[in-house]
Nucleic acid binder design. Structure first.
Lengths: 337, 337
DNA sequence: AGCCGAACTGTAATCGTTTTCACTGAATGC
DNA sequence: GCATTCAGTGAAAACGATTACAGTTCGGCT
């Protein structure tokens, strides 16, 4: 650490090493420099406590070495897990990550997209809100975009998503095999993910000749709780719920508790995202586990490929989920409907 | 959005508006410009789709308008909640946030601190690992630092922390009042937080003439699970556990389940962080709720005050926690020890 | 010996902004 | 009516790095 007042610049290093700034820059950037000078410069760097100024570097070299990551809910462990994977991959590639959280708020999201442009990011990994997805120019950006979790209907962008219909169908299959018939569904109304899961649910129910019964909710646990409480008061009350995210899972568990319905005998439930606590509540909750690690890594991989070949046609990577069976969907007891 | 190939710069805007670049810069930065020109420039900005280049702006103006946030575990909902609060406050002040996750890994942490310097951040909000805290020059950085969650023993830095000893003591008091006597403690060994909570635990136990029984663990749920399983096999097995974080809470619940001990009759438990799921497992888990929102906001406030008065003596803000009582610490049944 | 190319090195231009400084009119004060 | 301010404007100098270009040195080849 230098004792002088201001932070050392490349000029100070050059002076200390008795070379030109160009030479210093070259040893920093692995340019061709003789071993002797390289030694001297490295020594000077250490002595001055020099730290490159990334703003200057980025301005001059015209690439930011930065990738953006805009997620829709940072509290959702799915996204924190993905962002860790993305960050690891980025770091290994010598890139920085700017992580932003839109909170499902289109205005916030737009603000962050603008920020990304102003940062001149190299590429974006993006879980867009529905509003942005629906706007025809919502994804026309100055940099390559890889969508995660949510899918653009146009298919013009690279994307890596879960096989949502299949995953929802797996849950239906499982519940059906366990003896459940009146299976209801709760799906998020803010993302394509909810729609796709609903689609898989609907198809699987139809395949078994069962009537689907689905509702679409805002992404809050309370919404699910209320919906379940209401629903269970109706005639023909469901035996089981399939829900499309972990907030709803909480809501259903709360509702069951409020209604004093034991899980699974009073009410079975299955959902998405294998969060640590799903193992701990009640008899354990049956969930679809998403390959979060893979999703993050693959998104980065797609992004890098896109950067190398900007004109290659877009690709969608569809990953399978794993059904983690727990007590919340134990075989249905023979009982009166 | 311009149709031209390259992104528009301030020069293009100036050209389009028929003014000098200086004028454009001034309307962008609220400098003194006549109403007429301001109109023309704003129109030109819209027409060209101009977006400022933040690297250039930062380089020239010599302040980054960026604050750093280095947390030790992004999966910990405590930190995600804090970071949301920080980001909100920063955004309202027109600043950007760089969020980094050290994962309790000192090397990663150092790397990120270096990055912060290279980004020339305005200030840092920091939950340091113990290694960094113990190194005498670990917190000698080029910018103001506000510590959160963890506390430097030297007290040379601004900090906002929970009243950890008091919070742990609250749990002891509560358990004692509920009739528990053999109260064991599990504390994290990576942070000062664990130490402080242990200290409060120890003192409160002593105040009641109870013998303390504490162990320090690595921050994994499994570590806690094993510790509990082992411990419960010993003679003089604890009636209740106090744990210093939510990972340990999971571990204790898992252990209870493995040992077929009902909560709280077989084993009572209380911990920290009021995460949504703590309400749902077993009879509900008694926890200390931290004022996460407040912590984030206050950290930003301290940072801003420090920026305005760099030489003011350092200050520590100690916030109180709230004890959320749930079934996991229900009154002890009269039973054989 | 003389020439050529390879391997380094330094000078200076450049990246896209902000900001200093000088300058222009027009308005004000006497 | 003339000096004096003043608000608005533009030309050009930074900011701190990278990099194109032009030397310089040196070794090998003929």
């Amino acid at each position: 650490m230098s004792v002088s007042g201001k932070a050392a610049g490349i000029k100070d290093v050059a002076l200390a090493a008795g070379v030109s700034v160009a030479t210093v820059s070259r040893v920093l950037g692995n340019g061709p420099v003789s071993e002797a000078l390289r030694k001297r410069v490295e020594e000077a760097v250490r002595a001055t406590g020099y730290r490159p100024n990334l703003s200057a570097r980025r301005l001059r070299s015209q690439h930011s070495q930065t990738i953006g990551l805009v997620v829709s809910d940072i509290r959702n462990p799915f996204f924190t897990a993905v962002s860790r994977a993305v960050e690891d991959a980025a770091y290994r590639a010598g890139m920085r990550v700017i992580l932003c959280n839109s909170d499902e708020n289109p205005e916030r999201e737009e603000l962050y997209l603008r920020l990304m442009q102003e940062e001149r990011i190299t590429g974006l990994i993006f879980a867009p809100t529905r509003a942005t997805l629906d706007r025809p120019d919502g994804l026309d950006l100055d940099f390559p975009v890889v969508l995660i979790d949510r899918n653009a209907p146009t298919g013009r962008h690279d994307a890596v998503v879960l096989d949502n219909p299949r995953a929802a169908a797996m849950l239906v299959e499982h519940l059906h095999a366990q003896g459940y018939r009146r299976i209801a569904g709760l799906f998020g109304n803010t993302s394509t993910t909810g729609q796709e899961r609903h689609e898989g649910y609907r198809a699987a129910m139809a395949a078994h000749g069962l009537p689907p019964a689905a509702r679409f909710l805002a992404p809050y646990a309370d919404a699910a709780e209320e919906a379940v409480v209401d629903w269970m008061a109706e005639q023909d009350r469901p035996e089981a719920f399939i829900v499309s995210n972990s907030l709803f899972l909480m809501g259903v568990v709360k509702a069951a508790r409020r209604l004093k319905l034991p899980i699974p005998d009073g009410l079975a439930v299955a959902g998405f995202d294998n969060e640590p606590w799903t193992e701990l509540v009640g008899p354990g909750l049956t969930v679809i586990e998403q390959p979060v690690q893979d999703i993050g890594r693959s998104a980065m991989a797609l992004l890098f490929e896109r950067l190398e070949a900007p004109d290659r046609p877009s690709r969608r990577l569809v990953l399978g989920g794993t059904c983690i069976v727990r007590g919340s969907t134990a075989a249905r007891m023979a009982a009166a409907g």
